[in-house]
Measured scan of single mutants.
Amino acid sequence: MPVRRGHVAPQNTFLDTIIRKFEGQSRKFIIANARVENCAVIYCNDGFCELCGYSRAEVMQRPCTCDFLHGPRTQRRAAAQIAQALLGAEERKVEIAFYRKDGSCFLCLVDVVPVKNEDGAVIMFILNFEVVMEKDMVGSPAHDTNHRGPPTSWLAPGRAKTFRLKLPALLALTARESSVRSGGAGGAGAPGAVVVDVDLTPAAPSSESLALDEVTAMDNHVAGLGPAEERRALVGPGSPPRSAPGQLPSPRAHSLNPDASGSSCSLARTRSRESCASVRRASSADDIEAMRAGVLPPPPRHASTGAMHPLRSGLLNSTSDSDLVRYRTISKIPQITLNFVDLKGDPFLASPTSDREIIAPKIKERTHNVTEKVTQVLSLGADVLPEYKLQAPRIHRWTILHYSPFKAVWDWLILLLVIYTAVFTPYSAAFLLKETEEGPPATECGYACQPLAVVDLIVDIMFIVDILINFRTTYVNANEEVVSHPGRIAVHYFKGWFLIDMVAAIPFDLLI
């Protein structure tokens, strides 16, 4: 008679799926529990143990900040960024110097990925580790590398530091407007667009060049630039800015003055950032001319202004700041037409079709709590990747769950009947059967004279019903998954307890 339990259901295979997918890609990662103190490590794979030199037993239950890997060259700011990422709910990448158990130093890129439950609360953290440099290539500990984003994938490793954006290309926007319009339909740009040429040739750093990471940081200074100062900065030398009595002219307006920039070969870094931020506020060169004239017309309804409409929906549905990093990277690809469009465009503009998908598509409701890094690593669709929660398995109709209350009560009843059979069957065979043979035949009273025979008949009927119930009862397979398919249940029961239950259900007393 089957006594099969499996009270692990309803099970959740999400954690096993993450481990299996990460292991298949030869990654070095740990999984931490966000619900406990210090976000203790609950799993670390073999790749991480080989990377740091510690065994799994030495890593388990330690804080996922990996303070046991810190050393003299470990930056405090990087460690603080990892700790801050564990307090938030967004994906974050941090470069930090770690030390192995043998004392060797290596520069590592740590990717902190939160995993949320159905309520939107962070319950786990996945920390992925990628070695960037070994100890002989690690720089000085005073050099802070965590304020910069990861290198873009479309640049060669040897040319990542030679990417320079020439400031004269930004200063000569109005001069290039006529050349853009003359391109017409034969050019790649839309009317009114501004073409910015980027020099990728390796050259020595000069005062006129600005690194790509500095251009990325310009967006942080746009908020500090007032509207009046932006307007004066875009007017140009024809209309000098008016300053109040006793007030000095704005240095932001002076930063885009061609006369002032041409007199000296070098520009201050602050002026460069502010000038680029001011130019980015204009949607095209037409807006710059309109600002000089004193009238700013409404933005025209053409394809170039609607190019950012799908980007707005993608940004609203993005799951991490990696989408913004990807957008900034692609927006700086050289030799393309940049349409400086305000994100607050007309909502009635139709979304044009684009061959290049900048932001990841909208994630469906079932995966809105899973970050983009987890979705990318697992390579699963929205119909396959579940949320991290207890999910009731989908069972067929008329199927009994093996952990249901009805099955528990039924098993206790069958257990009592088995005990009765084990006690009274030998007793009936030894004593009652002998008395029946010696006594007179009682054929007239039937079952009324033999109450134990009636009980034995009921017990046999219950055993037959138990066999039928076992054909529709779920079970737990070797992978700790609840199986509810009727065919698989029948095959599993035939290979197991079916023969024993059938022999126990045969009414031998009635056959004798």
Rank of each mutant, 00 (worst) to 15 (best):
P2H: 03
H7D: 15
P10I: 09
P10M: 15
N12E: 10
N12I: 05
T13L: 10
T13N: 09
L15K: 01
T17D: 08
T17V: 14
I18R: 01
R20T: 13
R20Q: 12
F22R: 05
G24F: 09
S26F: 08
I30Q: 01
I31P: 01
A32E: 01
A34W: 01
A34I: 03
R35I: 08
C39L: 14
I42A: 01
Y43S: 01
C44K: 01
C49K: 03
E50C: 06
E50P: 01
Y54C: 01
Y54H: 01
E58N: 01
E58I: 01
M60R: 01
P63H: 03
P63F: 01
T74M: 01
A80N: 04
Q81M: 12
A85M: 03
L86N: 01
L86Y: 01
L86A: 01
L87S: 07
L87R: 14
G88L: 14
E90M: 09
E91N: 11
R92S: 13
K93W: 12
E95I: 04
E95T: 08
Y99M: 01
S104R: 07
F106T: 01
L107T: 10
V113A: 06
D119A: 06
A121F: 13
I123S: 13
L127S: 01
F129K: 01
F129H: 04
E130V: 11
K135N: 10
T145C: 05
P150I: 06
P151Y: 13
T152R: 14
P157R: 14
G158Q: 15
A160H: 05
K161Q: 13
K161I: 01
K161W: 10
T162M: 15
F163P: 15
L165T: 14
A169N: 15
A169H: 15
L170A: 14
A172N: 08
A172D: 14
L173T: 15
L173G: 15
R176L: 06
R176P: 15
V180D: 11
G183Y: 11
G184R: 11
G184T: 05
A185C: 09
A188H: 12
G192P: 05
A193D: 12
V194R: 01
V195D: 05
V196K: 04
D199G: 06
D199V: 01
D199R: 01
P202E: 10
A203Y: 05
A204K: 15
A204R: 15
S206A: 09
S206M: 13
E208Q: 09
E208M: 04
S209M: 05
L210T: 12
L210Q: 13
L212H: 08
E214N: 13
V215K: 08
M218V: 07
N220C: 08
V222L: 11
V222R: 05
G224N: 06
A228F: 09
E230H: 03
G238A: 04
G238H: 14
P240C: 07
R242Y: 15
S243V: 05
A244L: 04
P245D: 14
R252G: 14
A253F: 13
H254P: 12
L256D: 06
P258M: 13
S263W: 15
S266Q: 07
R273P: 12
R273Q: 08
E274N: 04
R280Y: 07
R281E: 14
A285E: 12
I288C: 15
M291E: 14
R292Q: 14
R292T: 04
L296R: 15
L296K: 14
P298I: 05
P299M: 08
P299V: 05
P300V: 15
P300G: 07
S304R: 07
S304G: 08
G306P: 14
A307E: 13
A307I: 12
M308Y: 12
M308K: 14
M308I: 12
P310R: 07
P310A: 07
P310I: 09
R312M: 05
G314M: 09
L315G: 12
N317S: 07
D321P: 10
S322N: 15
D323G: 12
V325A: 14
Y327W: 09
R328M: 05
T329S: 13
I330P: 14
K332N: 08
I333R: 15
I333K: 11
Q335T: 11
Q335V: 03
I336M: 12
N339E: 07
F340G: 14
V341K: 15
D342E: 07
D342W: 01
F348G: 13
F348E: 07
A350W: 06
P352E: 04
D355R: 07
R356Q: 07
R356W: 01
K362M: 08
K364C: 04
R366S: 11
H368I: 11
H368F: 11
V374L: 12
L378C: 05
P386I: 01
